[in-house]
Design a protein around this nucleic acid. Sequence first.
DNA 1: ACAAAAGTGTTGTCTATACACCCATGG
DNA 2: CCATGGGTGTATAGACAACACTTTTGT
Lengths: 234, 234
Amino acid sequence: MGLAGNEVLAAVLQVRSGSLRVLLWQRAREPHAHRWSLPGGGLGSREDVQESIRRQLAEKVDVRQLSHVEQLSVFSAPDRVPGQRVVATAFLGLVPSDVDPEVPADTAWHAVDSLPDTAFDHEAIVRRARDRLAAKLSYTNLGFALAPPHFTISALRELYSAALGYRVSATNLQRVLSRRGLLEPTGDTAPPGPSGGRPAALFRFSARGILVTDPFAVLKPPGGGRPAGVGSTP
Amino acid sequence: MGLAGNEVLAAVLQVRSGSLRVLLWQRAREPHAHRWSLPGGGLGSREDVQESIRRQLAEKVDVRQLSHVEQLSVFSAPDRVPGQRVVATAFLGLVPSDVDPEVPADTAWHAVDSLPDTAFDHEAIVRRARDRLAAKLSYTNLGFALAPPHFTISALRELYSAALGYRVSATNLQRVLSRRGLLEPTGDTAPPGPSGGRPAALFRFSARGILVTDPFAVLKPPGGGRPAGVGSTP
DNA sequence: ACAAAAGTGTTGTCTATACACCCATGG
DNA sequence: CCATGGGTGTATAGACAACACTTTTGT
């Protein structure tokens, strides 16, 4: 088995039906039977934490559907779970809004804003994941991880609105992402809805991996350069 | 004893003599004898990781001299240390530039830009700490953790320059921090140097704990408010 | 008076939000 | 030809870096 006392947990987030949701699994047994908990499990002896969480999520969600995984932090209160001491490394995982992964019968997507009874300290982990996502949407290209390969600006606006928790203007969203070179038009258009309207142009994110696009708001180095070792768009 | 297989490590940074330095400890025994490593040790069974690193640093540095401690991330490659598997939770620690802690004989401050031979993966941890510090100096008030209680703008400029690795303008530094309400004049002045010059006013940071002062460069909620419940992030 | 150091005024640039207006389609 | 949704143009505000200029001291 794994390394005793270490587990990895992930808050896997997706925007579904206009709200930000997290994948939870209902515990069958004590402790905390019937409460909802995050997917994860013990750390194996031949894997690091990132490999471990990806392996364990593969049992719930097809790995290829996970568009982004990043470490949040360690949760290590001595009594965070009853019984033997367990230290948890928590992750944020993201799934694009166009996929609907097959999940086991005891798992379900719950709105982050109205969680059911959660097990252990998992609610705090979900909040951390939501906060991290909101912050990174602003200064990175992380939107790519929530969005399908092609999308209209309206659809993207709804994803950002759901993830941030407030209404985002489609106009300004398009401008900000375009100026940063993150968005490119595919050339195609989406058909209008049943009540008419101009057909929407389709866009895609120009980069698939995460990039920091606004690394330093202030105290920039002289000459407008970037400090070494911090990623940014070419 | 502690929880087998878990350790905590800290890169404790301080600006000394104009350069950013890290506190390292020279190993006496194998593995990696004579190489320099970060302070830390095994996680105790009745403490969380934050308590643990503070306890272990107290052996090297007076705890009251640590102005800030925050978690960086988990280092967990299976072979990161020879022998038994050990998962490390890495921390950033900061010490104000006016204190000179008594440290054991086998420890020393090394410039982050020219590290000696380091043990295990500790060099990567130091780089992470340096990058995190540089980023947070820009969008939080973290400068308070590097600075003495009272300081001139010139002195503060040197701290920021050393930590960021490039020359910062005193003019703009003062303006940025003042606009954000982080800096207040004490009313006192520092005497000029031997060659004369106008005496510098002394300032202090108005808040002692870390605050995020520029949380969202873009995609702000309408009306200029802040999204609810979103705290600090790396 | 002069040199040195500190701090302020001013300007140009860049980024971002808000809002009005024009565009393309269905009924 | 009108309603509906998509997209652009433009005004305004704010933040910041660069640099010139003024202030206050020591010699």
